[in-house]
Design a protein around this nucleic acid. Structure first.
Lengths: 228, 228
DNA sequence: GGTATTCTGTGTATATTTGACGCACAAGAA
DNA sequence: TTCTTGTGCGTCAAATATACACAGAATACC
């Protein structure tokens, strides 16, 4: 309980550093991807990990996550959800670091990640081809993915990953990429259109004459749906 | 990201104290209750709050939660689930304290909470009559309750709250208490018995001759069910 | 002691949701 | 032209959730 650090209940209140790590999901070329960064400092130099950074003096962890995403990889405006907090004393090989994991959804085409600071590289990795990660980030990523799946089953929150105009097939590929299972095309179409936040667009893709119908999002209607 | 506290990405890495707070739920007299403690030190002296304490040097937060529950209120063996982490810089009026909230399920009849340390009182409060809480614990409690509801809808995890022998009516009251809505007796009965982890007991309540059928839990079967 | 009331215990019919699946049409490739 | 790919629509069956009525047992009441 807060404010009682001076009682015998508390052995030695550990002043651990607190960081925020992000599993940033994006969708392009029909595949679900995660944004990973490669460290160029020890520990785990050369390893890929989730982007993250330490909480500042007057920051909430969520702000930390947003700041780091912006400063480190140039990504702004993300949909952020807290996943969990990890506090194993030995999860960091050098000092005590507690981390809170978030997952984020972004449109990859809106951002060009750039490696700065202690990073030697930043890249999108298909979720199916993620290399072994440093620290316990493999676990974080897995938990974040699971949470995303769970929340996606409840609410249609994945549309932040799609471009402004998209086909239903693309939306379905996205869902399949996240859930990791094949969906029936007709059922998916019925279910998604049952919501009323998709607006049919008269425009077609590129210069092509025919082709599938493009939809765009009625953001207000989606938000209404999400609040339910 | 961990281990990089010395780069410009990190403004001033704040060494906030980290605590674990618990929303401990119990069920007795047909009512869902929360275990609250009353503080006798500032800040919020005289206020009711969730029991909690600061993370120790070599502790995971979950261990902290267990230790505090044992030391402070004499409750052991709880079913613990992490809810979320709260890091608003001003959520504690005196110093920076980040807290991770857990919810716990216990059988009240197995424990007699005792106020120790900086506490002047410990008591079970019906969830419907919770006083205004100190800090932001009202929010924590609410979030914990919501998480419990959400998880209960997925898995039958509430049986940790029931005594060894119980009637289906009691189980239903428990569910209704948690979910906050009335359930149809026949449908509830059917759904619960569809699982195979309830064992009908020949014994009846107390010295009474007749009365409703008592059930006990097949823990192994329940665990099997929970893993699904 | 008798009657009223409350609680337990059971089955069935209906509406809703979900999942599987067949077929027609249009465009681009072979 | 034919074949392949992808769109768009409707049906059917299964599973699930919801609504609902009544008899026997125990208890409370008179």
């Amino acid at each position: 309980m807060d404010g009682t650090l001076n009682t015998r209940v508390t052995p030695q209140s550990a002043a651990a550093t607190h960081t925020a790590d992000c599993a940033v999901f994006g969708f392009s070329e029909g595949v679900l991807k995660v944004l990973l960064v490669q460290r160029n400092v020890e520990p785990f130099a050369g390893h890929w990990v989730l982007p993250g950074g330490a909480m500042g003096e007057d920051e909430r962890l969520e702000q930390t996550a947003r700041r780091v995403m912006l400063e480190l990889v140039g990504v702004r405006d993300l949909f952020l959800q807290q996943v969990a907090t990890y506090s194993e004393p030995d999860r960091h090989p050098v000092r005590r670091v507690v981390t809170t994991c978030y997952y984020a959804l972004v449109k990859p085409e809106n951002h060009t990640p750039v490696a700065k600071g202690y990073l030697s590289d930043v890249a999108w990795h298909p979720l199916s081809e993620v290399p072994p990660l440093g620290f316990d980030h493999g676990r974080l990523l897995n938990d974040a993915h699971q949470r995303l799946i769970q929340q996606l089953r409840d609410r249609p929150l994945a549309f932040d990953l799609l471009p402004d105009r998209f086909t239903l097939t693309e939306a379905q590929q996205l869902y399949e990429g996240i859930l990791g299972e094949a969906l029936d095309r007709r059922n998916f179409r019925r279910k998604i259109l049952a919501y009323d936040f998709l607006i049919e667009t008269r425009a077609k893709r590129a210069g092509v004459k025919g082709g599938p119908v493009l939809y765009r999002l009625d953001r207000a209607a989606l938000d209404r749906e999400m609040r339910k």
